[in-house]
Nucleic acid binder design. Structure first.
Lengths: 222, 222
DNA sequence: AAATTGTGTTACAATATTATCATAAAGATT
DNA sequence: AATCTTTATGATAATATTGTAACACAATTT
């Protein structure tokens, strides 16, 4: 999730922007002045900054200069918002190093679209994920969430869950599971699978009920 | 010198834009329709495109779609110019993949400032610094700082850290790390990785805890 | 040449995971 | 209902993995 820092002195506008960005799925931190903003940048290193250029105290322009001179943070994209819409204001803002300039009043949808564009180039890698009935698995990260709450699985539990998720509604015998996940060939009589199913079900909480057992056959993820 | 392709059907505006861009030091090619523009792109591969979205013949939107679907040219930045200024027009244009949207009538100075911004970002060579959760790496200088304090890493430790920083939160097996950092078929035991992880963790002090080990899987930078 | 540094290997203790087993629970069959 | 079969699950032992210090050797520096 991308982090956005909103620097705006006017409370109602700051809250409106924060609310809309949060709703759009961003992780928002806001600051009512540029001095605090500099501290936040150190702390959270945002992926993008929305900056009101006219503020009491440290001016937006000064803030932008400081930011753009810092090798550490100069690459963070900045969108300026400003009530001033004259040609020279816009050109000045952009020449200071801002990546976009939006004049007040502005549309939240447009702001969000512009935020997305600027972030598009930064985070282009797509995730390898599976989402099935409230079970969310990020395969590359080895992470599992049930209804947005992360749970921790062991290797075998993870592999087992992943196998079911890749083959939902298909019934597997214990030997099939053993050969696919454990790599065993022989038709061994063992309760090992049962045992792992049991602990997986418990960790999946109510989603555990999605793993059904079919007597005399095996297991399915419904 | 940067090459800019201007796609605009209205002759007077096309000439005005071309004239101003040329005066600003750009190498301009113009096209009065989108079909021709596609040919120019093949021939000259411009660094940036200025596109009127409403044109007879092949529409600007269609042109943009074709462009953005082409892996070869999808990264060329596009500035849309349009008489339509409604919120939905702007959002649609941006979502199609444009990098900016300017409504007619517009200021030439602003257009040029925006062109410069987009070119600045493209021409800026890929980041040679990484800043992640208090770990700051200057790749060219081979320097690593944790919370502004410089630490000294060996070559392998540095490469290992860099690899993790470039792929944060992704889990890698020891073999993956070996092949990515040590080379193709380095005849090396996987426990070597553990060893290096261990020393890297120690040098990273409290940040060392960001490198997590996943039993039976590998390591991740959280 | 000696000292230092970087790297890969090994050994062993500390951890974590997994398989197995015993027993309970559930379901089927008569 | 009684009996038999199958599944669930917790405890525990067995196994596998990981962390790290120690060491050897090569490369580099002094």
């Amino acid at each position: 999730m991308n982090k956005i820092l909103v620097v705006e002195d006017e409370e109602s506008l700051r809250e409106l922007i924060s609310f809309n960005l949060t709703k759009a799925g961003f992780d928002v931190v806001d600051s009512e002045n540029a001095n605090d903003a500099l501290i936040f940048i150190e702390e959270i290193t945002p992926d993008l900054i929305i900056l009101d250029i006219m503020m009491p105290g440290l001016k937006g322009t000064q803030f932008l200069q400081i930011l753009k001179r810092s090798p550490k943070y100069s690459s963070i994209p900045v969108i300026i918002i400003s009530a001033r819409s004259s040609e020279s204001d816009i050109v000045d803002g952009l020449e200071l190093g801002a990546d976009d300039y939006i004049t007040k009043p502005f549309s939240m949808k447009v702001l969000i679209a512009k935020v997305k564009i600027l972030l598009r180039r930064v985070s282009k890698k797509e995730d390898n994920v599976i989402n099935y009935k409230g079970i969310y698995v990020d395969i590359d990260k080895y992470k599992v969430f049930i209804e947005d709450k992360e749970i921790s699985l062991t290797y075998k539990e993870f592999e087992l869950l992943l196998f079911f998720l890749k083959n939902p509604k298909k019934v597997f015998t214990r030997s099939q599971l053993l050969s696919n996940i454990w790599g065993y060939d022989a038709e061994i009589f063992t309760r090992t699978v049962d045992s792992h199913i049991s602990s997986l079900r418990k960790k999946l909480e109510d989603k555990g009920e999605l793993i059904k057992s079919l007597p005399k056959v095996g297991y399915v993820l419904e």
